[in-house]
Write a protein that binds this DNA or RNA. Structure first.
Length: 770
DNA sequence: ACCCTCGCATTTTTT
DNA sequence: ATGCGAGGGT
């Protein structure tokens, strides 16, 4: 039985009667003509499982959107019968827009979205079946951590030794792998708090249920459980989704894989698009192996490779290919292009992160003079911490920039406070929201009052709001907190009864809650920004029909669409850049320890290194016509200056396609001569010659690089054999002022300060008295 | 209850 | 550098 007829047999006669004739009658679609043969095959292979291996820049999104348009155009399914999952909201939005443009139908694809948003949608429909109410709250990381901290405290576990963050990571990992508390064995849990982790996980899930809440992982795990435990409901969804498309398939984790396999069982019309070379989310549970699993689970799958690159010029592509060829674990794809070779990607060593920012700023200005719009340029970084240097420099130089990712709007304290108020308006039983704001702004309610509330609420399994309502009618509470609490509850009652739009409500709540007054009172630059953010929040709510819709959006969508004011250079992490492209791409920070990240290497060895290399591949392949790589000899990390050798990835680039830019003038050696050695180590890449470098990287493997040498600050000071200071010498300390050395113990000095008396200090904080 | 200071760890990356 | 929790003073 073919997949199509199998699917068809599950549909009603009238449905089939309606769909069939017009499907055959539709005219050859003009949108197919502009596709290359492979793309066209990927679009037209509608029957049965399809795996599309799509390299960078091969028109992947185009294939996905055209495929959907094709399904719709041939009337094989209606929009609501197509399930299309992406990983990011950005990708979902883009695909939605492109399909609307192709079909002219707005909102035609209700089941297009991220795994998480679709999971949430399904879960809300059948919440009772997994022990939730339909209006359940989706916890963010912050709520989650606070909850876990409470649990750790309850178990008397030392939070210093076993941080809540680590437990959150563990639970997240289990959920990504599809493990419920019952599935977590002793061995799995042994690594945390002497095996208590399994119990904590169980307690955590219990608390979530009482709170009528889920976390991110639950959106998938619980919808999977829902399907598994309710075959009738599963069957409905299996019949509904006649076509399933998955973007960025290489990033799926175990649950997502099971989820897809289950829902696609009936129609078998599952089309997964992915690129093993761009798998960069292993750290959050993604399993590239799912690509291999696809062919195992669907042996009849059609596999289509898209290898013609339309994005980058020849040299850029060659550099990317040469780099990724160092990975062993690949399915192997060869990208090619008929575009011009173009300019060779450049490699440039600089003295430090400041020079790096300055040079790139200058290059951006030069490009602008040549007619490149700032909007067509991007700086792609390994970590968000690297952004600071560029922001500072660009502000100085007046270069317009925007940050994608970075500190998220909805995670800012002032926004989360306001959101907590709104959550409580929407749902009085949201205890985590209650705990967040019951004393924000300060209103004289403290630990003691909260403890009293908990003492009553816990055993009775009642919410804090509910408990507070009854407690204020008794004499349990002291008069003052009692009155304050009464007022607070009255505020919420009033707000809940308020007529008007969600935006009106938000404006009133933000104002009457005292949040605006709280920040206005601060009168700092920062507080002003926070007030602006609150205004922005109110404005954002205006775009939603109901408060509930807005809160759902906030939980699932992390970024906020910034109103564009002119073209800007984009500043973002390489992770955030996946799927995007720019004319000119700057890639700073290619240093050992930073990129590849030491952490990735330490935690995951060769696999970690290969993932880092894929990230480098993603970075380079974002560029259409120019890629510029930089490494700095010196970089400030957590306040300390560190010196690192250039990234091994630089030595792995194919020499013939790279232009090495030698510093015209030796870098500026200021401020002190002790940087000299580090500066020269930055030039190492030119000396040994590319050949040796290539050979070295051939036998691949994971070499542990020399750890970064800290050349200023504590680490060095502690390691120093003897101090440069002598007993009796006059010295000056930033905080304690002038004094005289009375004893030397390695780097530790005992100093009699003129004002502060005798102190033990480190010599690195001391200078000779002027 | 609130404020301040100090010591300490911390940070890759995101739905 | 920054941010959090602990501890002590008001």
């Amino acid at each position: 039985m073919s997949a199509e007829s199998y699917a068809a047999s599950a549909r009603s006669i009238s449905e089939r009667a309606r769909a069939t004739p017009s499907a055959r009658a539709s005219s050859p679609a003009p949108y197919l003509d502009s596709l290359n043969p492979e793309q066209r095959r990927a679009v037209e292979a509608l029957d049965g499982p399809v795996l599309v291996l799509a390299g960078a820049g091969v028109g992947k999104t185009r294939v996905l959107t055209t495929r959907i348009a094709h399904i719709l155009g041939r009337r094989l399914a209606r929009g609501q019968e197509i399930l299309a999952v992406t990983f990011t909201n950005k990708a979902a939005r883009e695909m939605r827009e492109r399909i609307e443009a192709l079909t002219g139908i707005p909102d035609g694809m209700p089941w297009m979205g991220t795994f998480h948003s679709i999971g949430a949608k399904i879960l809300r429909r059948h919440a009772e079946l997994v022990g939730l109410k339909p209006n359940f709250t989706i916890l963010d990381t912050d709520d989650q951590l606070r909850l876990l901290k409470q649990l750790l405290k309850a178990e008397n576990i030392d939070e210093k030794r076993w941080p809540a963050r680590a437990l959150a990571g563990l639970i997240d990992d289990w959920k990504n792998r599809g493990l419920t508390p019952a599935d977590v064995g002793a061995r799995e849990a042994a690594g945390f708090a002497n095996g208590l982790a399994a119990k904590l996980y169980k307690d955590y899930q219990g608390r979530l249920k009482t709170l009528n809440a889920v976390d991110f992982g639950d959106l998938l795990l619980e919808s999977l459980r829902l399907w598994r435990e309710n075959p009738d409901i599963l069957a409905k969804y299996q019949e509904r989704f006649r076509y399933i498309l998955v973007d960025e398939y290489q990033d799926t984790n175990a649950v997502q894989y099971l989820w897809l396999r289950l829902i696609a069982q009936t129609s078998r019309n599952l089309c997964c698009v992915g690129d093993d070379d761009q798998s960069i989310y292993g750290w959050r549970g993604a399993e590239v192996e799912n690509i291999l699993g696809f062919e195992r689970d669907f042996p009849d799958a059609t596999v289509i490779r898209l290898e013609r690159n339309y994005r980058s010029t020849g040299h850029i592509l060659a550099v990317a290919a040469g780099l990724i060829a160092h990975n062993r674990k690949r399915l192997g794809k060869t990208l090619f292009t008929s575009a011009e070779p173009g300019a060779k990607p450049t490699v440039r060593g600089v003295h430090d992160s400041h020079q790096e920012a300055r040079e790139i700023g200058d290059e951006i200005e030069a490009e602008q003079r040549r007619g490149t719009s700032p909007a067509d340029m991007a700086i792609l970084l390994r970590t968000t911490a690297q952004m600071r240097a560029f922001e500072d420099r660009f502000n100085e130089a007046g270069i317009p920039y925007r940050i994608v990712g970075g500190p998220r709007f909805y995670e800012r304290a002032e926004i989360r406070d306001a959101l907590a108020y709104l959550r409580l308006v929407a749902q009085a039983d949201d205890d985590l929201a209650f705990e967040r704001i019951y004393n924000t702004p300060r209103r004289g309610l403290g630990e003691a009052t909260l403890a009293q509330l908990h003492a009553v609420a816990r055993p009775a399994a009642l919410s804090l709001t509910h408990t507070a309502r009854s407690l204020i009618e008794t004499d349990e509470l002291k008069p003052k907190p009692r009155q304050v609490l009464r007022d607070l509850l009255a505020d919420f009652e009033r707000w809940r009864a308020l007529p008007g739009t969600p935006e009106d409500l938000a404006r009133v709540v933000v104002d009457e809650s005292g949040l605006v007054a709280m920040w206005t009172a601060e009168k700092t630059q920062e507080a002003n920004g926070r007030l602006d953010n609150l205004k922005e929040l109110v404005r954002a709510i205006g775009e939603f029909p109901t408060l509930e819709a807005f809160l759902e959006h906030v939980a699932l969508v992390t970024e906020v669409q910034s109103q564009d004011s002119g073209p800007r250079v984009t500043l973002m992490t390489m992770h955030a850049a996946k799927g995007l492209e720019f004319d000119v791409v700057f890639l700073p920070g290619w240093e050992e320890g930073l990129f590849p990240s030491q952490r990735a290497l330490d935690d995951n060895g060769l696999a970690g290194l290969e993932e880092e290399r894929r990230l480098a591949y993603v970075g380079v392949t974002r560029a259409r016509r120019r890629a510029a790589i930089y490494f700095a000899a010196n970089r400030q990390v957590r306040g300390l200056w560190q010196s690192s050798p250039p990234s091994r990835f630089i030595d792995e680039l194919p020499e013939a396609h790279v232009e090495v830019i030698e510093a015209a003038d030796p870098p500026n050696y200021a401020p002190a001569s002790r940087f000299d050695e580090a500066v020269f180590s930055g030039r190492r890449y030119e000396t040994p010659g590319w050949k040796r470098a290539q050979e070295r990287s051939q036998d691949a493997g994971y070499r542990r690089p020399a750890p970064p040498r800290v050349i200023e600050g504590r680490a060095m000071a502690l390691g120093a054999e003897t101090s440069a200071y002598r007993i009796g010498e006059r010295v000056f300390h930033q905080k304690f002022g002038p004094g005289r050395v009375t004893a030397v113990d390695g780097a530790k000095l005992t100093v009699d300060f003129d004002k502060a008396g005798r102190k033990m200090v480190l010599d690195s904080f001391i200078s000779r008295e002027a």
